[in-house]
């Protein structure tokens, strides 16, 4: 990497850090700006005793100047201290850590499935070779993107589990229980990603390098996979952050539909119980992962596409 590239990389990373800092501040301010007493906000529906109140005031430094409170909060956050849940009487990091695995497995399965589906759909329907298929698939994509993900889940559940008894109705026992939630979460992703990828492939097919590849006598499949699809992947990479957000937000609802344990359950319990430290931690963490994923995606495109490096 030359100096120009290094500078470009550093600039992206710095921008990511700034966004992260602003996001953490925004979440913090949201809690402070909440109507009523901050101690009440932080306790939520948890046990309210003088000892706990004193502990909250000490932990959040509420008896100290506002600026110090804020710096203290950032300092703790930077050290991975996510605070304490007053509803569950446990450290937030512990609560989240325990429930991370099921959500991670579900998200990874859904992401893999969604991306694979989108790649296949885009490769098969791009160009003008099969207009009816293209029409069919863009209609289906519109339908998938416009349906609430949990409705897709409920339809699958109704038909495949209740009618046909193919899959368990709820729980997370075994890989069979993972199929329906993963498919549910993957379908809207595949729908949007396929649209973006096909647009990209269509545009790439108009480029001179495709004409060159064809003139060299390459088979259409090779032109598509090696030249057009690869070209279309680049704009799709920038969707990585969006993909992540959809997965996490979707998981909250989908886990509810299929009665799966996980981060969704934790978040929902926290929101309905007004367990602010947990909500704050989930929201801040998700923003952090989004920023990391997005910055990584930016860097990947920077490395893959020489044209971006020059500018």
């Amino acid at each position: 990497m030359g100096r120009v590239q290094l500078r470009a990389v550093l600039r992206r990373v710095a921008a990511g850090v700034v966004v992260l800092w602003v996001a953490a501040t925004a979440a913090y301010l949201a809690v402070l700006a909440a109507p009523g007493d901050t101690v009440d906000t932080l306790i939520g529906d948890g046990a309210d005793t003088p000892q706990i109140r004193a502990a909250i005031i000490a932990e959040w430094g509420l008896d100290r100047p506002a600026l110090l409170q804020y710096l203290d909060y950032l300092w703790r956050l930077a050290h991975g201290d996510l605070g304490r849940s007053y509803l569950l009487q446990r450290p937030v990091a512990e609560v989240i850590g325990e429930q991370l695995a099921p959500t991670l497995i579900l998200s990874l399965a859904a992401a893999t499935l969604g991306v694979l589906l989108a790649l296949i759909i885009a490769a098969v329907t791009a160009g003008d070779r099969r207009p009816w298929l293209r029409r069919l698939s863009s209609g289906t994509e519109l339908l998938l993107v416009s349906t609430p993900p949990f409705l897709i889940g409920l339809v699958l559940l109704s038909v495949l589990s209740f009618r046909l008894g193919l899959f368990p109705v709820a729980g997370d026992a075994g890989p069979r229980a993972l199929v329906l939630p993963a498919v549910t979460l993957a379908l809207p992703i595949a729908g949007l990603l396929a649209q973006v990828l096909r647009d990209g492939v269509d545009r790439a097919l108009d480029e001179p390098f495709v004409l060159t590849a064809r003139a060299r006598g390459l088979r259409e499949g090779v032109v598509l996979a090696r030249h057009a699809l690869r070209h279309a992947l680049l704009p799709a990479v920038t969707l990585a952050g969006w993909l992540f957000g959809t997965l996490l937000g979707g998981a909250v609802i989908i886990e509810q539909v299929f009665g799966r344990p996980g981060l969704g359950q934790v978040t929902l319990t926290a929101v309905t119980g007004k367990d602010m430290p947990v909500v704050l931690a989930v929201v801040t963490l998700s923003a952090a992962v989004y920023v990391v994923v997005n910055t990584a995606a930016d860097l990947v495109s920077l490395l893959v596409d020489p044209r971006l490096r020059r500018s």
Binding site: V19, A26, A30, G245, V252, V279, Y290
Partner: peptide, 19 residues
């Protein structure tokens, strides 16, 4: 930018948890 960094649904949930 920072507001867009939060997943839409979770940010809305943060707001609803507060109010």
């Amino acid at each position: 930018d920072a507001l867009s960094a939060f997943p839409t649904l979770l940010l809305a949930m943060l707001f609803i948890a507060i109010v």
